[in-house]
Amino acid sequence: MTTTSTTAPLRARSWSSVSDGEQLPPLVFEVTRTTLAKDVAGTRDLYPIHHDHEFARANGARDIFLNTMWYQGLIGRYVNEWGGYESFVRKLSVQMHVHGCPGDVLTVRGLVTRRHRDDQGRPLVDLDVAIANQGRDDAVAATVTVELAA
């Protein structure tokens, strides 16, 4: 088990109950070499910087590091576990500030920044999501727009 489990698994969240400034419960993920192997296999990204330590070092990284797609997956999971399994990510923007390497312990945190409807009346929530590592609170920063089911 490398992550904290969801305590209220995927229960639908009502859009009207969401308020600006609401904080999402944190999620902890411990990154190991096996995490990196699952990242490569799961996202099918064979760029050597994610699996070849020497290549990564020669290219200025401290070790092999998690790719963008893995962060997208983790952030999507985090938001859907809060929004409920029928919530649907509409927009996702991810900025990687420092590499995520084996040995890092990541903590994902989220904050509601806006509740609104789009021109089709869909109930949306904007979130700021940050992934902290042992050295930096925003090792990865993301903005997400999620559509709730109701």
Partner: peptide
Amino acid sequence: SIRQFCGAVEDANPMYWDEALAAASRF
């Protein structure tokens, strides 16, 4: 391939794993 992706980040959302629940969902 969808589930291999989910496995990399340990995403248990039934919309990707549970055919019956997904069929009954809004999707």
